[in-house]
Design a protein around this nucleic acid. Structure first.
Length: 260
DNA sequence: ATAGGGTTACGA
DNA sequence: TCGTAACCCTAT
């Protein structure tokens, strides 16, 4: 990566991501005025936030940039004339944790010869960036994301949450740090968060394994990217849980049943 | 005020 | 020299 002029610090980037997750992608002014990240983003204008978010989105989308395939206008790879959310195109990924990720066809019209397994999390983040929708769509997007990673069991998870809070099995590996952070943010562990966390970990493990089998040098780099996506996923899960707790679960169920 | 395009500067 | 990220300008 480059080390350009006024590089963004980790705190600034984190604040930006949190702001997008909270207020949604697009309300740069609101995020900048938010007293929570105002001191962090004091030296950044709303335009700066937008530009930074654009760079982040492009970096998260164009993971497989090993090919020198130069496109004069590398817009969104899944850009379609239909205004409907494209992320709903993901269908029937039952085995997510296996080494062979389901390559959807409609997703990448000009896919390079490199397989470049695209994570669902990255797709969701990309969709979030593309969709400048109000909060409702955001919840639906997050819901779909978690459902996909959870093998279509989100509603069941929430039902279990209300009836009996299941215990979370001990986490393993590097994601323990993330879990601690997420748990601290929520105050205590929740089934929904744990489910999303476990799903993210499964995808992460599959990613790592897949790359371990093929490339060794790129693995570290990929892990770094993956960690960022996992972090975003956990934050998404936190937001989702918060909204559901406030009584928006009805909307989620509605969307879930309508879409699937 | 936001989105998009274009330009500039820095690192590899 | 190329690629990426910040910066700047313009249209909606």
């Amino acid at each position: 990566m480059g080390a350009p002029k006024q590089k963004w610090t980790s705190e600034e980037e984190e604040a930006l991501r949190r702001g997008v997750l909270k207020h949604g992608a697009g309300k740069w002014r609101t995020i900048q005025k938010d007293p929570e990240f105002s001191p962090v983003l004091s030296s950044r204008s709303n335009i700066d936030l937008k530009d930074k978010w654009r760079n982040l989105s492009f970096s998260a989308s164009g993971l497989g940039s090993r090919d020198k395939q130069r496109v004069p206008r590398p817009k969104a790879p899944s850009s379609s004339p239909s205004p409907s959310p494209q992320l709903l195109l993901l269908s029937a990924p039952n085995n997510v944790a296996e080494a062979s990720p389901p390559e959807d066809c409609e997703k990448s019209p000009q896919d390079d010869k490199t397989p470049s397994p695209k994570l669902y999390s990255s797709m969701i983040l990309e969709a979030l960036g593309e969709l400048k929708e109000p909060n409702g769509s955001e919840v639906a997007t997050i819901c779909n994301f978690i459902e996909i990673d959870k093998s279509y069991k989100l509603t069941d998870s929430y039902a279990k949450r209300a009836l009996a809070p299941m215990k979370d099995p001990s986490l393993k590996k590097k994601d323990s740090a993330k879990s601690s952070k997420a748990a601290k943010g929520l105050g205590q562990s929740s089934p929904a968060l744990d489910a999303a966390e476990a799903a993210a970990m499964k995808v992460a493990d599959a990613e790592a394994k897949s790359h371990l089998a093929n490339e060794h040098m790129m693995e570290v780099e990929r892990i770094g990217k993956m960690a960022e996506e996992t972090e975003s996923l956990l934050e998404l899960a936190s937001e989702l849980y918060e909204r559901c707790s406030r009584g928006e679960a009805l909307t989620i169920l509605q969307v879930a049943h309508r879409e699937f």
